[in-house]
């Protein structure tokens, strides 16, 4: 099972990214299963939010919050702390939206890419970085998920931002 933890602030779309990943993984394959859920509880704009995506080739039955993740994606670098590294599985990676380098993690200036496409949030950019780095879903399936689950008028900009982010980390 692949497990991804998303960290953001209320309103940044971390949970939307968690859902898009789950949708992308399962979108064209009946033998793939995904769960996506936010940290449970009351919702407040600006408050730290966690979201979780679990992906597997058999039904995911453990509905509890992920304790060890393959990837941790952080939309706001003020939420980063070194203790987060303890939540990683052995091979895991932390991807942070930041203008500064942070030791031990992968940082990208997600806001710069988002602003190129006039996007107020970096969630689809960070989704694109994850797609490019992890190859856990294809870019095509990620695009299909955006088409299926985001409002039509913002689809094109988000798709372009996602592709730009995938390109950024292309191997």
């Amino acid at each position: 099972m692949k497990e991804i933890i998303w960290l953001g602030r209320g309103g940044q779309g971390a949970f939307t990214a968690a859902k898009l990943l789950g949708a992308a993984y399962t979108i064209d394959d009946d033998e793939k299963y995904g769960l996506a859920f936010p940290s449970f509880g009351p919702e407040r704009r600006g408050a730290p939010v966690r979201a979780f995506t679990k992906l597997d080739t058999k039904p995911v039955v453990d509905r509890s919050q992920t304790e060890k993740a393959d990837y941790i994606v952080i939309l706001d670098d003020t939420l980063y702390s070194p203790q987060l590294l303890e939540l990683l599985k052995g091979e895991g990676n932390v991807i942070v939206n930041s203008k500064n380098d942070i030791s031990g993690v992968l940082t990208f200036d997600g806001e710069k890419i988002a602003s190129e496409f006039r996007l107020p949030t970096v969630n689809t950019v960070m989704f694109g970085l994850l797609v490019g780095l992890s190859e856990v879903v294809t870019a095509d399936n990620a695009i299909e998920a955006i088409k299926g689950y985001m409002p039509q008028k913002i689809q094109e900009r988000n798709i372009n931002a996602l592709l730009r982010a995938v390109q950024e980390v292309a191997k």
Binding site: L35, A36, F37, R63
Partner: peptide
């Protein structure tokens, strides 16, 4: 509550 009502799946 939450583990089913707020959790997304196919």
């Amino acid at each position: 509550g939450f583990v089913l009502t707020h959790t997304y799946e196919t």
